[in-house]
Nucleic acid binder design. Structure first.
Lengths: 159, 159
DNA sequence: TCAATCTGATTGACGTGTCAATTATGCCCG
DNA sequence: CGGGCATAATTGACACGTCAATCAGATTGA
């Protein structure tokens, strides 16, 4: 009985629609963000974290944890952002291995420029598109999918 | 009145959950596919299209249309797949500009190896995670979001 | 003290995606 | 015919992501 049938045509269509639509939404928001501020979603995430940190500065590893990225990803992204003067990197005084990421003026400006239009876009593209019931359902669906990922029906050696 | 408020904290949480969960699902499926067959989702999409084409061959531009990719993306991906002997490229006899993409034996084998586990994974990770109502709601949410993307509340010069 | 080890961060190789430019061929019309 | 334009596909430059390897500075334990 654990061997149920393959997904039906309808189920496959919904699955595909679900994922592809998520991508479209993401892409549309990213395009608007880029147009309004020159920032990528990654840039925005970094600047948001920094702007909420005291002094606009943060240890690189703390940043990684805050936005949920791998450390090497952070390193690469900071390298690109540093070239554009959005952030600076300084040596950490309390731990010579460490690096501190500092919000640069251009970064702060771009972030402030970006925030309001970005929030408005999220409302327009996502929130306004759905009825309150659909919005709630979206949250429940996400939760159900996460639960399934955390506890797969048939463990296959994947975390 | 067209200037409604920014999204609430809850709305933002749902929005973020929705997109991030989609990514997690995608990543989990991709990891399983990779493990079971050595194929990436892109590889799978290409091989699926080819395996459904008569003779396992297809014009490169037709392939692009079929799977909804940009042509340059197809070119790059085919280059990588060709190096792994999953496909071959031949000159098109009817149009000397054109290229025909041909399913290679290794590609056919990998695809057949991949299909059943992949469909089962989709069922386990996505379909089985949701109640029938949630599945239906997921379809409706995707449709609503697409409709919104096609007809933005406040056009901002974006297609 | 100082060697083994742990940890913070960077780096390099590579897959993947976009955009703009390029190449080569087909095609149409004066 | 032949110049001009459309089309097929590739290419190059770059952003972004992962993984594995590396490097330097902390830590700690005989």
């Amino acid at each position: 009985m654990s061997t149920r049938r393959f997904p039906t045509r309808d189920e496959l269509r919904i699955w595909r629609d679900y994922l592809e639509t998520g991508d479209l939404v993401r892409a549309s928001l990213a395009a608007r963000l880029q147009r309004s501020s020159g920032l990528s979603p990654g840039d925005y995430a970094v600047l948001l974290a920094l702007s909420e940190a005291p002094g606009g500065r943060m240890r690189s590893s703390t940043l990684a944890e805050t936005i949920g990225w791998e450390r090497s990803r952070v390193s690469h992204h900071l390298g690109r952002m540093e070239k554009r003067d959005l952030i600076r990197r300084e040596n950490c005084t309390t731990d010579n291995r460490g690096a501190e990421v500092v919000l640069a003026p251009a970064g702060q400006a771009a972030f402030q420029e970006a925030t309001r239009p970005h929030l408005r876009d999220i409302r327009e593209i996502f929130v306004d598109a759905l009825t309150p019931e659909q919005l709630a359902a979206a949250g429940e669906i996400a939760a159900a999918l996460r639960a399934q990922l955390a506890h797969p029906t048939a463990p296959r050696g994947l975390a």
